[in-house]
Amino acid sequence: MSGAPKITLATAWLDGCSGCHMSFLDLDERLIELAEKVTIVYSPIVDTKELPAGTDVGILEGSVSTEEDLHKARMFRERCKFLISLGDCAVSGNVPSMRNTYDLDDVFDRAFIENAQAQPQRPSESLPTLLDTAIPIHHAVAVDLFVQGCPPPADAIWFVLTELLAGRTPDPTQVTRFGA
């Protein structure tokens, strides 16, 4: 093994379904190869509680829909040198943004009252405040690379990561697209 320091990688999911992370895990045995070059310092799939400053690559899944998402997006931008929007929700708002044409009150009523089977009522605590609209990550903070797909196929994620590790800037539109 070479003594070269490993690249540090952080991931998080905001308003998404976790499908992009599942697609990441679909790298299967390639994860072992990846682990030789990369240390995952913060992610739903590891146990660290704090995103270290100066992380090399940050990957965000999901759109920015709540105050908490906004906070996380800003934190990733601040602490990661290179930020990737992974998947259509992060890149375009996608399914979470389908609520954007409705009034926020109506959205709450629909979710917690009209469709509730027991105790219809609006939650008053423990939920982060919803923003008026769900927006793509890059409408909140600057993003360096956009990987479309719902979810992006594992092969597309592999292509993007290996190109980055090789010091090149990949063009993800060659391997994925909106809705892929």
Binding site: S85, V91, G93, T133, H138, F146, D171, R177
Partner: peptide, 18 residues
Amino acid sequence: QSLARACGMDHVRVPYRN
């Protein structure tokens, strides 16, 4: 959709009108 891909339109910079 396929034109977006062919032209490398990988994100929308302007606000969505909703």
